[in-house]
Design a binder for these strands. Structure first.
Lengths: 108, 108
DNA sequence: TTGGACCTTCACATCAGTGTGAAGGCAAAT
DNA sequence: ATTTGCCTTCACACTGATGTGAAGGTCCAA
């Protein structure tokens, strides 16, 4: 799995002299993030594209100057798709908890 | 795709005399729901299991009496997994919009 | 009544993400 | 020095969701 993420340019663990990969603490966090997004329906291709922008505005990995209008559009489009997923999941979660509450009112 | 959903017991379109499938208006809504959930990382197996409980508490498809503790546990577990996805997606959406706002403050 | 446009089933192919196992290198312990 | 264990690469297999295409049935319109 880690090799696959690396092949997909989602990860870039350093190498020791002997050729062994080196995963730092940041890689662990990154892998958790990747797995969460994959499990939420994003593809590695999309993740690769938005990954440089996912660490919050305080840590800007890509110079604002080189953010083309096209890239910005891609980003906004992806935000929309993510929002659509959130809406879908929220709706269905609500239905589920409502059902549970209706069927077993005592256990809140 | 529709045949696959049917094979997975997510859909049960009626048949005309000639054997043709019949998709009503409800099927359209159901397919949208299924596609949304699939796109959000649920599997057909999970969807099949929770589908009878997804239509809100006002339309109860399964008698409360036959909701075993085990089933209830499954449902609650699935709610948790869905919530985890929502959290993950929300986090990353926030990071994305924060980045966009930081890089292009004029376009709100 | 013969096309054409749809439907059926069935069998495969595809793609993404993941797992597995062989063949061999490196390193620390026995 | 040899064993043990983890690492490397490479190749292959698997699963889930989807697409495709053949072989044939049904219906409607020219």
């Amino acid at each position: 799995m880690l090799r696959y993420y690396e092949e997909q340019s989602l990860l870039d663990p350093g190498r020791s002299d002997n050729g062994y990969r080196w995963y730092g603490e940041a890689a662990v966090v990154r892998v958790q993030q990747i797995r969460g997004l994959l499990d939420s329906g994003l593809t590695t291709e999309i993740i690769r594209r938005i990954l440089p922008f996912l660490d919050g505005p305080e840590v800007i990995h890509v110079a604002p100057a080189c953010v083309t209008a096209e890239l910005e559009g891609l980003l906004r489009g992806e935000v929309e798709r993510i929002q659509a997923r959130i809406d879908c999941l929220s709706r269905n979660r609500d239905a589920l908890v409502a059902y549970l509450a209706a069927v077993r009112p005592e256990s809140l």
